[in-house]
Design a protein around this nucleic acid. Structure first.
Length: 466
RNA sequence: UUCGGCAUAGCUCAGUCGGUAGAGCAAGUGGCUGUUAACCACUGGGUCGGGGGUUCGAGUCCCUCUGCCGAAGCCA
């Protein structure tokens, strides 16, 4: 008997009357009257469960079927039939049921057929994928990840695997995790008493990357259209619902391009991946809309159908100063936009996603391209209703003399950037790119309000248990 | 890291004025002729996060530690 997924049976891939085998985990069992049990089976292939109808005539009805509890794994063969009950179109009349794995001590099985708090589910991260909400989230996460690669592939971009381990001091953004094979209880010392990194694995200090951007720029200046999509690490002791110590980042980089091209790319990209979720994961989105965030579907539909606005930072500050509402932080030219400012701009001023461009140079990174006014750089943040900043990007400084001046101005060590500077010495071109925290996108698409619930195994300060 | 909140049954929670522990769900047993996170009845289930203190007596008050959550900072 051919095996089908729950999704295939429900979608009619196995037609009415077909004999099928399905395998999965029991979510609930209901017994009705003398001699009929209804089993809700899930296998992760879609949101819905498949109803199995087991009659008392089965040889192992009393010994097995009547003992099934949530979480038991089973292999079931039977016939696909039109359901005699309400609530589902098709179901499977069981001809044989084999218990593959029992749940010992059902009372302590953490995943009960009832709502759990997300905080509790984080404590059982190894079992939470069996819940509706985590299963749905991870299907959406996969859908987004596949769409990311599909978008770039269809548009001629190459996926560059930038390194996880880096010996570069130049990445800048935040505290880094150290990578070392030295014996920490007995560190080798130089004559001067410092730790002798020359004896470490790489012969120098090494850390986990906080961004693939600088590395991917090198491939951009050869393959023209490239992107990275991989894990990044921040050792910041930040404990918020929006931060992880290990998260995935998407960073495209385009050659012969300016900030406008960068913004256009971000718009096409974001619309593409969210459209994919709307088209491919309607079942999971319906669940989120019902139980997590009522606006999630309309928000995504509005996002993919609206034309993004573009707004100068200087104008944004003026809008904020003229705003009738009172902000906790007073907006002022030269200050970074606070979350409350970003929400106001995108939700109240323009009412759709907006790219805010050309920020003061003093609040942005050294590699961002200096504008002709000498006081702003070609940076952009894309703000979206309901979330605020979703993408940050910039045109990169391609002029060696200007780059060197910026490095000096910010007190950085020019020698640390020798290979980055080489890109400006040998065939430099204008180029631009942006970064998107992948989990932020998953949060936006699912309505989740804690980032720990959109990654399989969250890594946060004092938490790496699983 | 700073500020605030929380910690009681497998889960979600109640517990009044300090007087010796409760409910719903889950689990177990039985019932019900097609159920929809079924329904009905009964049963079992607790070192009240750890440590210390006040008190005749602490789930309850105080101190401390740990963990979790939220906001801020930082950022993606």
């Amino acid at each position: 008997m051919k095996k089908y997924s729950v999704s295939e049976v429900l979608r009619g891939v196995a037609p009415i009357g077909a004999e099928v085998t399905v395998q999965g985990w029991v979510r609930t069992r209901r017994d009705s009257g003398a001699g009929l049990s209804f089993i809700a089976l899930h296998d992760g292939s879609c949101f819905a469960t498949l109803q199995l109808v087991a009659a008392a005539g089965l040889a192992n009805y009393e010994t097995d079927v009547m003992k099934l509890s949530a979480g038991c794994s089973v292999t079931v063969s039977g016939q696909v039939v039109k359901s005699a009950g309400k609530g589902q179109d098709v179901e499977v009349t069981v001809s044989s049921l084999t218990v593959v794995g029992w749940v010992d001590d059902p009372e302590t099985y953490p995943i009960q057929p009832k709502p759990h708090t997300l905080e509790f589910l984080r404590e059982v991260a190894h079992l939470r994928p069996r819940t509706n909400i985590i299963g749905a989230t991870m299907r959406v996460r996969d859908c987004l990840a596949q769409a990311v690669h599909r978008f770039f592939h269809e548009n001629g971009y190459y996926w560059i695997h930038t390194p996880i381990i880096t010996a570069s001091d130049a990445e800048g953004a935040g505290d880094m995790f150290r990578v070392s094979t030295l014996d920490m209880a007995n560190l080798p010392r130089t004559e001067a008493g410092a730790i002798d990194w020359d004896q470490d694995f790489f012969g120098r200090e090494a850390r986990l990357t906080v961004s693939g951007q600088l590395n991917v720029e090198t491939y951009c200046l050869a393959l023209s259209k490239v992107y990275t999509f991989g894990p990044t690490f921040r050792a910041e002791n930040s404990n918020t619902r929006r931060h992880l110590a290990e998260f995935w980042m998407i960073e495209p980089e385009i050659a012969f391009a300016d900030l406008a091209a960068d913004a256009a790319l971000a718009e096409a990209f974001l619309k593409y991946i969210f459209k994919a979720v709307l088209e491919e994961r309607a079942d999971d989105l319906a669940f989120f809309a019902k139980f997590v965030d009522k606006t999630v579907i309309s928000r995504l539909e509005s996002f993919v159908s609206s034309e993004f606005a573009v707004m100068e930072y200087t104008d944004a500050i003026r809008y904020l100063k003229d705003a009738k509402v009172k902000f906790e932080f007073v907006p002022d030219w030269g200050c970074d936009l606070q979350a409350e400012h970003e929400r106001y701009l995108t939700e109240t001023v323009v009412g759709r996603p907006v790219a805010v461009v050309n920020y003061p140079k003093d609040i942005k990174a050294f590699y961002m391209r200096m504008n002709d006014d000498g006081r702003t750089v070609a940076a952009m943040d894309i703000l979206a209703p309901g979330i605020g900043e979703i993408v940050g990007g910039s045109q990169r400084e391609e002029r060696l003399d200007v780059l060197d001046a910026r490095i000096a101005e910010m007190g950085l060590n020019r020698d640390d950037y020798w290979w980055y500077r080489d890109l400006r010495r040998y065939g430099t071109v204008p180029h631009a790119g942006f970064g998107l925290g992948f989990e932020r996108a998953v949060m936006y698409a699912t309505g989740a309000d804690n980032i720990r619930d959109v990654i399989p195994f969250p890594r946060t300060p004092r938490n790496a248990k699983f």
